[in-house]
Simulated assay, not measured.
Amino acid sequence: MGEATLAGDGWQAVTAGARGAAHAAAGRPSQDAARAARGHDGAAVVAVADGHGHPQHFRSEAGAVLAVDAACSQGLRRLPALLAAAAQEPQPAVRRDFVPQLVEHWRAAVAGHLSQHPYTEPPADPLVPYGTTLVLAAVCPPWLLCLQIGDGDLLVVRRDGSSFAPVPQDRLLDGGRTTSLCQPDAAESVRIAAVDLRGADVALVLLATDGYGNAQREDLWQPQVGADLAALAAEHGPDWFAAQLPLWAELCASGAGSGDDTTIALLLHLSVTPERRSPWTS
């Protein structure tokens, strides 16, 4: 069953992940991670990360866990006050005052992990083995902050089923390589968007590692997925999604899907979902 986490006033997060069939066949662990957290002031942060699969990133599963931990801890600590102070246009303040702190917090966490698990043969750059992407969504009313480095998907879905990808595309992605938290200029590669919730009528936010998008049959899959998710949110509550999300992740991660590790997170607005409990909830 997926993990459902109360994530702030009016919002709930649901996360699930599955090891890719290709990773299982090779005896490799899942290199994805997900985390959701809430603050005492109505703030909510959800993050997914995808550790890189190349052999030089041989600690990327740890890097991904450290990335979502950093996103949630730093997001709850810094974003509410930062977004409240930048009421009209929060993106410059986020880029100046939050992104560098997030990257530095991840690097410090990597250093802490290294102190407990030192390399037998140190690489030229100690960060590279921990390389990972990161996708983050944070609700700090009235703002929804979206942040991403590397590949993966971030989709904002409106109540009427229409949807949009909030962050700009990464010009450096070529299908084989991705930008990463481990690169020296990681902060410059982070893409940011802020959505004003007062006028956007947001029903939910989808975050996923690239195993999800690569499993879709259509290249332009986002409009139909957004419409389907909005319809499901109108019919079912978060507990239903918590039961279904692992099944969706398993299907995407299977040989019939992408075969890659797949992690999915939904940030659901509870004003959209009905008040009901799933029969699968214990």
Results as ranks from 00 to 15, higher is better:
R38Q: 15
L155P: 09
I192Q: 03
P238R: 15
W248F: 15
Q56R: 15
G27L: 03
L220E: 02
L247D: 15
D125M: 04
W143T: 02
G8L: 01
A21N: 02
A108C: 06
D32H: 12
A26L: 05
Q116Y: 10
T120F: 11
R78Q: 11
L66H: 03
G199K: 04
G255T: 05
A230R: 09
Q101M: 11
A109K: 06
E61P: 07
P118Y: 04
I192S: 00
R177F: 06
G152L: 03
G20C: 05
L144H: 09
L270T: 00
D32A: 09
R159G: 06
A70Q: 00
P122L: 03
D97L: 00
W11I: 05
Q216N: 13
L247A: 15
G211H: 12
A84M: 01
R107G: 08
Q101P: 10
A64T: 01
A81N: 04
G131Q: 08
A265C: 08
A4I: 06
G213R: 12
D32R: 06
Q91I: 03
D41L: 04
S278M: 08
H269P: 11
P141F: 04
R38S: 15
A256Y: 13
H52R: 13
V272R: 07
L266A: 15
P123K: 06
V139L: 07
G161S: 14
A62R: 14
A93D: 00
P126F: 00
D125H: 01
S282D: 10
P126D: 10
A108S: 14
D9V: 00
L6I: 04
A242T: 13
A33Q: 03
L76C: 08
V225C: 13
L155D: 09
L147P: 03
L173F: 15
P166M: 08
A24W: 00
H57M: 13
Q88F: 00
D50Y: 09
Q101G: 15
D151A: 08
A25F: 01
L145S: 07
A208Y: 07
E275S: 12
T120A: 12
